[in-house]
Design a protein around this nucleic acid. Structure first.
Lengths: 101, 101
DNA sequence: CTCTTATTTCGTTTATTTCCTAAATACCGA
DNA sequence: TCGGTATTTAGGAAATAAACGAAATAAGAG
């Protein structure tokens, strides 16, 4: 989850997510909308992917990026709730609530 | 608003906000809950304040930090909606903003 | 296999962030 | 005013992030 907030910290990356809300797009298509070199965008894609905010699909020579809305929603929930522990916690045995106090 | 996402990118700052959700706290009180030097925390406070995520009140020699929940909510809304154009306050009916295509 | 298109990786430079210690500032009570 | 507590500012080292051009990789067409 921390990865998601790191990813969201950069305006270009938020803009990419915004584009992907409309429809999935190839890397090049996205890159064309920014005044940045393609390797730079590729780096941003990698950050978004590491944060699981997007997923990819290869289509011929292109790679199509898709928004992962659920992760965005989860991040929003964390902001409202600041629970931070909404992720994969298979093994949580709690002696006493981490949540409130 | 961009400041808010920068501020939220750091786990310690998110943790501070989480503490402030329960109740307002002095700088020292917050600092005691982290294993970091006080000036380091003071820097984090400054970032949160610049992002308008907290506001302060002096009480004697202490400075009390309060959470600004509305800004957090606004950030969450941006995530769900990725509008990003929430700057102008009272009259927000911008249908098509700064981004080009 | 070779050529073209799409995208990423590599190596490097520059900018920003994070953290620290030491010193400064602000307030209060005696 | 002096002394103590609370907090911030200053200055700097180390780590991380962002950007670029050049080269590498992947897939499809011929």
């Amino acid at each position: 989850m921390s990865d998601a907030f790191d990813a969201l910290a950069h305006p270009v990356r938020r803009q990419i997510l915004k584009l992907l809300r409309k429809r999935p797009m190839s890397a090049g298509e996205i890159a064309d909308r920014f005044d940045l070199a393609k390797p730079t965008l590729s780096g941003h894609f990698a950050v978004l992917k590491a944060a699981d905010l997007v997923w990819t699909e290869r289509k011929g020579t292109s790679i199509i990026y898709h928004l992962n809305m659920s992760v965005l929603e989860e991040a929003a929930a964390v902001l409202l709730n600041l629970t931070e522990a909404v992720k994969p916690k298979p093994n949580r045995m709690q002696k006493w609530s981490t949540a409130r106090r």
